[in-house]
């Protein structure tokens, strides 16, 4: 697989290109927005009931759904005291006439990796709390991000969907049968621990103007984009320049200031739509200890509550501090 200049480009009438550009010169967008204004952002947490965690994110007409699934796995040899986080992203062929079915291409792989890095480096998920037996068995958290409709700014929608799905995620039950651990998918016993919030604001440069949240038409004529992940405390949690253009140092400065500023807006939406949902779930777990989904509950096995192992199995689970960059060994 080599990276090739995109040769199949969306049809874009020159007239429209000129309209977008001349409007931007006046500080107006083709849909009437200001340069630094998002389209309406909506998040539906728990959209996929079968998933441990999920969220549907809409930014204008752009639609991205993310689902969290969990299973048990052997930890990586270099991080025996950490659970595993796997982020995958795909552009579905239903999302646009320009997306072909097939395995993830370079755009999907890049999207998955920038989301993964932003989550990992901020330690959004405390992986050390997902250990069942150090070096032997840990929780593996899959985040799958699906782009359902591409109307521009998929990166921010995807980052938001991944974050929201993790915040909405519930830990399935854990049972021990003899020496073996199994996931009890008939019940949820608590929330997935989530330590931080990270959102992204991608800045696009169109005809030398910096704009946020471009729609598909605007994005088509943008020659460079800068993905900027921002943490809840206003730090930069990830960067990626994308597209065939370049940025000056002054433009980068300006872009980052815009991103830090607008991240507050996205964090507010996240808190409003998903933070409250999570708090509700927390209340339920505080009262009932578990949410039974259906099916025959395990009565013969030893039920392990809240993802913690039975006392006898191991000492000090999840408390061993290891200074490792989790998961680096696989890909970095």
């Amino acid at each position: 697989m080599v990276s090739i200049t995109p040769w199949e480009q969306p049809v874009m009438p020159k007239l429209k290109r000129h309209t977008i550009a001349s409007l931007l010169a006046k500080g107006v967008r083709i849909d009437g927005r200001k340069l630094e204004q998002f389209r309406p952002v909506d998040i539906t947490p728990g959209y996929i009931e079968r998933a441990e965690g999920s969220a549907l994110v809409k930014i204008g007409n752009t639609m991205v759904v993310a689902g969290v699934k969990m299973d048990l796995a052997e930890p990586f040899p270099d991080t025996p005291n950490e659970g595993i986080l796997v982020v995958n992203a795909e552009f579905m062929p239903i999302a646009s006439p320009y997306i072909e079915p097939g395995p993830p291409d370079e755009n999907a792989i890049e999207l998955a990796r920038i989301i993964d890095r932003s989550l990992r480096e901020m330690r959004v998920i405390p992986l050390d709390k997902l250990v069942i037996e150090p070096g032997k068995i840990v929780w593996r958290i899959y985040v799958d991000v699906y782009v359902l409709n591409h109307d521009g700014n998929v990166t921010d929608a995807a980052m938001l969907a991944a974050m929201a799905a993790l915040m909405a995620a519930r830990m399935p039950g854990l049972v021990k049968e003899g020496d073996e651990y199994k996931v009890d998918r008939t019940r949820y016993v608590g929330l997935l621990p989530v330590n931080h919030r990270v959102v992204s604001v991608t800045i696009s440069k169109i005809e030398n103007r910096l704009v946020v949240d471009p729609n598909y038409e605007e994005e088509t004529i943008a020659d460079v984009r800068l993905f900027i992940a921002v943490s809840e405390d206003g730090r930069i949690a990830g960067l990626q320049k994308m597209g065939t253009g370049a940025l000056t140092l002054a433009e980068i400065d300006k872009a980052i200031n815009i991103a830090i500023n607008l991240s507050k807006y996205l964090l507010n939406v996240l808190e409003e739509k998903v933070g409250k949902y999570r708090a509700e779930l927390e209340k339920v777990f505080a009262e009932k200890k578990e949410i039974v989904i259906g099916g025959v509950p395990h009565t013969t096995s030893e039920v392990v509550v809240e993802g913690q192992p039975v006392e006898s199995s191991v000492e000090g689970v999840g408390t061993v501090a290891v200074e490792n960059e989790g998961g680096k060994s696989r890909e970095e």
Binding site: M122, A237, Q240
Partner: peptide, 16 residues
């Protein structure tokens, strides 16, 4: 010479 940044990635956390 163009004073342009053509590659920029950041893996980690930095303040402004």
């Amino acid at each position: 010479s163009l004073n342009q940044v053509v590659l920029l990635q950041m893996n980690g956390v930095l303040t402004l």
